[in-house]
Structure formats: C-alpha cells, structure tokens
Simulated scan of single mutants.
Amino acid sequence: MKYAFSLMVALLVALAPVQSQSAPDLEGDPVLFTVNGKPVHVSEFLYIYSKTNAGKADFSEESLREYLDLYIKFKLKVEAAREMGLDTLASLREELAGYRRQLADSYLIDKEVMDKLVRELYERKKQDVDISHILVSVPRDAAPEDTLRAWQRIMQAKAELEAGADFAEVAKKYSNDRSVERNHGHIGYVTVPFPNGYYNLETAAYSAPIGKVVGPIRTDAGYHLLVVHGRRPARGEMEVAHILIRKDSSLAEKKAWSIYQELQRGASFEELARKYSEDQRTAPNGGYIGFFGINRFEQSFEDAAFALEHDGDISEPTETSIGYHIIKRISHRGLGPLEVER
C-alpha cells in the first residue's frame, strides 16, 4: 500500500466541494492510495466520508485525516484477509464489521444526538417559562482578561442577590441587556427554541428550581444569572383578527365599545373591521392578523386573545399602548404529536 498522506489530504480538501453524485470521471478522479496494486480513488473515499458524516462532513483537514487513516486500516485488513483466505472466518468478519461500524459511528452518534435534541425540544415545548435574567456581555472569543472581568462582574451581581438585594435593582446596576431599563430584567414568559448560542440558558430555564438565582450561565452573549418565576402549560399559537381604534381622541374607547355592541347584535366582524379598523395593514382583509405565539404582541393583547375559549369568540375592547382592540379568535394551534412536530 502506498500513498502520499499530506498531498492526498490537500487534494481531498481541494476536490471535495466539486464532487457530484453523477458517475465519476476516472481521468479526473485521482488515486488516493493503493492496496496491493488495487487503487482507491478520491471519489470512493469522498463517498464514504460524505455518507457517514452526512451534514457534518465539513471537509476539514483534521476530519479528513481521521477518516482517511481509518479507511486505510479497513482496506488493509480486508486485503490481508483475502490473501490469507481468512475472510470467511467469523472472528475476522467481526473485526472488519467493527471497522465498518467505526466508519459509521459519527453518523450514528450525530443521529442519536439529533433525536435526543428533538425529543428534548418537544418536551420543552409543552411549557412556557417565566424568567428574569442579568447579562454581563462578553463574546466567546474575548481576550482572557475581558472574560475574567465579565466573570468577576457577574459574580459581584450574584453576591448582592444572595445577600438579599432586590433583583430589579441589581439588574439595572449590572445587566447589559438593552431592555433592562424597561423591564428591570424580567423577560416574562418565553418558549423554545431559544436563539442560537443560548442553549445553556434554555436548559437552565427548563430545569432550574422556581425562585432560585442560578448561574453564571455561559452563552454566546456572555454570562447570565437566571431566575425562573414559574412555568405553565404552553399557550401554543392563536389565529386571530382584530378591529383597532387608535388613541387619537378621547372618544376612542367609547367608539370601540360601540363597535363591540354592534358585534353583539350580530354584525359581521369582517365588515366592521373593513369599515372601522384603523390598522391599515389588516383592515382590508377583515382585520386578519394570522397566527401568533407568546411575546409577539403586548401582554394585554396576548392575554385577551388566549383567553378566548372557542373559535369565533370575540373579546371586549382591550387596551394597549396604541389603542383599543376587539379580537376575534379564528383557531388555536397547540402542540401536535412528536412525529408531526419533527
């Protein structure tokens, strides 16, 4: 068996992105190595590498070296067994099967990990979590001294909380979250999945005891302290339409109640939305908003919408910062079976 390792790895890195699933062109398909005069082409190795790694095939030099070394060992074992007439022995067949399993291990492990994460996500989707947090920002690639400084700052915040300080005051003092002046660290109810890079925070939110300060928790944003205030069955998504009367005059609330009374007498919601609603985007479509989940709109709007129990139910005028909304429930979408949610 012969091969030029460094040269071949470099060649693999160069050729990998342009390999196709069509029949290989052997003139443009270099020999990667030979075993007893039998060539193993680049296309063969790339096929097994891509197949076993699936979406994780990054064609990095480290990954290619690891798989090339393993594949060479496998090929040598097979050829040696054939020469000695031992390839039918059960013990050797088991050893060769072991190499095949190794070649497939990363794919199988990745699949197992993915299945576990999907199931974990599904279970977490069954609940919404009410949280507060304090964030001290520091990128993952920050200089060591900056990381240490951030760690010390978050630990100072935790020490103050453990000494009995008010969470909102500590959040305003230490947190780099841009919303802290408005919410004092209280995010409210959230659901999965959290943004990329926040998996550790998500895990803490769904596992931490109620009312206890936990952390520091490292994410891509920095270090967090977290308090879970409560958990509830997930609200899912509500499909709604609305009629909006903006707070442009002192008569806005009165006008909203007048429209509500018309609806109670049997008037068409869609016709009144087109006639009266001051939401220029939705009014032409009968007030239709579509589906929405938690934390998309103001809390009063969300609570009023999710309080509607049956399709077709209509809320009383609900006040938000921009006006008065009359909300119609069209449908509700909860969590489906695992196989559907996949």
Rank of each mutant, 00 (worst) to 15 (best):
W257R: 14
K212G: 00
V214S: 02
H242C: 06
S258M: 13
Q261N: 10
R232D: 05
S258Q: 15
Q264T: 05
E271M: 14
G215Q: 06
L225C: 04
R235G: 14
A267R: 14
I243Q: 03
R232V: 12
Q264K: 15
I259C: 05
I243H: 02
M238Q: 13
L272D: 09
H224P: 01
R246T: 14
R231C: 05
G266V: 09
R265H: 09
E253N: 05
Y223D: 03
K255M: 10
P233S: 11
S268G: 13
R232C: 02
S268V: 10
A256W: 03
V214T: 07
E271R: 14
R235Y: 09
G215D: 09
K247E: 07
A234P: 05
E253Q: 13
K255R: 15
I259V: 15
E262T: 06
S249R: 12
R246M: 04
A252N: 06
D248K: 09
Y260D: 05
E239M: 08
P209K: 03
G230F: 05
W257L: 07
E271Q: 15
L251N: 07
I210Y: 11
S258E: 15
I259H: 06
H229M: 09
V214P: 01
T219I: 01
A252V: 07
Q261I: 03
R265I: 00
L263K: 06
E271K: 15
A241V: 03
P233V: 09
L244M: 14
I243K: 02
E253V: 01
L226N: 10
H242M: 07
R265D: 12
R235E: 10
S258Y: 10
I245P: 04
G211S: 03
H242G: 06
P209M: 01
I245F: 04
G230C: 04
G230W: 05
A208S: 13
S268M: 11
G211K: 02
L251R: 12
S250Y: 01
S250V: 07
V214E: 12
K247C: 00
G230M: 04
G215V: 11
I243N: 05
L225K: 01
P209C: 01
A241M: 04
F269L: 08
L226T: 13
V214Q: 02
I259S: 06
S250T: 07
A252D: 11
R246H: 03
S249Q: 04
R235Q: 12
G211W: 04
K254T: 13
K255P: 00
R218S: 13
A252E: 08
I259Y: 12
E270F: 06
A252S: 15
A234Y: 02
G236K: 11
S207L: 05
R246I: 04
V213G: 01
E271D: 15
E253P: 00
R232G: 03
E262H: 12
R265S: 14
